[in-house]
Design a protein around this nucleic acid. Structure first.
Lengths: 132, 132, 132, 132
DNA sequence: GTGGTCTAGACCACT
DNA sequence: GTGGTCTAGACCACC
């Protein structure tokens, strides 16, 4: 689901880019899937069509989508490879950052806590065995 | 204990910087503690004094140690505060990087594996007690 | 023009750092301008390449220049912003120091004299036109 | 005249120290001159006597004044020498700072402007010749 | 060719 | 003894 948060200080077109990119990279969008048209999405989100166009243009530049003039915008057929590259890069960066954090004296428990925070596991699920 | 690995492609002086910085930041070195002299450490590690000097100079620039010419090199008295700032900065960077990794589709299990790798839990301990 | 004074008690590499930094900050060096190679400058100034290398390394750490291994050393493209920040910082420090000096009983005439000394106005120019 | 500014974020006893030190160093107080008693000054400034005492104690430690128990506090007979040392030190520091500022690209006119600001010459006095 | 690292050996100023 | 600077000469990886 594509959404935007007007109160967020991040520009709307950046929210759109991150949003669609994440959906594509995480496999929620299929290769060559037809994306909503600029006008349609602008109407749905009550946003200026120019903003949508700006986001689509940047996504095309990133090879995440491609445009067929007069037909619409589609998810790149290479989206799988792009996703794999992105994953590998983030994983490598994370490996390095973990080493830095450990060297700075950060304990494993603290990182586990960050993980809980990042993956947003509600307290009920985590401590569910109390009531089972 | 200060050591260097000649086979490591990382420069010796960088190994020394990271090594001593970690010792100081993790509390193994006391504030104002007297470090081995340039010549002494060079002899102990079978390394040229210039290389030790290069490492000590950079550590002084980072405010991790301070030098009294004619007296020796000493752990900075502010080392505690420096360590805390470093920890906070690395933790914040890690939080951001974890969010990026998750958005790229990295699963929590993969990060747990990286954690095992980072904190160097021997394979025996990690898998042994599960099914035995 | 980059020069060094062997008779000066200030270390050669510090002279080089100050010298090049001043040239860059005052706009005599263009962003991304190619600096003399380590060996070339060493030959020109009749100085050991290691000393040049030490100066270049510190300038890179200060973000005044950047190195492309195998290509050479270049003036930082951000040199303009770096110069502006430096100027503002020095001006503020000077403002504080002037207040201290005045409180210590230093008169304005003495500071004017220091200014003449600092900006090296030849005696002829300074006194000549007053009574002539 | 000894004054304090309650709204200033600088501690009152530091204001007192700077204030009295400046008066002594600038020659407004004579060697061996009798300073107001702790109680008298406390009453005049509507300040706790302990604060006055703390300031007098620090000034005695700096050899700016000396205390005769039961008699009172007096300006040090060496105040002249102390003032000269202080002046010389501030002048030297200023000389160095001026060199730094010049190297950062600060022009002489800017420093002249700072001087006007520091020595607080009202515009009327400076441009007095307009109405003379 | 370039920057970057390391070694060996020397000298200085300071404690 | 200590840190700090400098030289001379070598080797590596990269372009």
């Amino acid at each position: 689901m594509i959404t935007v948060d007007m109160r967020d200080r991040k520009p709307i077109y950046e929210q759109l880019i991150d949003n669609i990119r994440t959906l594509a990279v995480q496999g929620y969008l299929q290769p060559d899937e037809h994306l909503p048209s600029v006008r349609q999405l602008a109407a749905d989100l009550a946003i200026n069509p120019n903003t949508i166009q700006k986001a689509y243009a940047e996504l095309e530049r990133q090879n995440v989508i491609y445009a067929l003039p007069g037909r619409g915008n589609f998810v790149s057929p290479n989206i799988g490879a792009i996703a794999r590259e992105e994953r590998a890069r983030q994983l490598q960066t994370l490996r390095v950052q973990l080493a830095f954090a450990r060297r700075a004296g950060v304990g494993r428990e603290e990182i586990e806590a960050l993980l809980d925070e990042t993956y947003q596991i509600p307290t009920e699920e985590r401590t569910g065995d109390i009531n089972e």
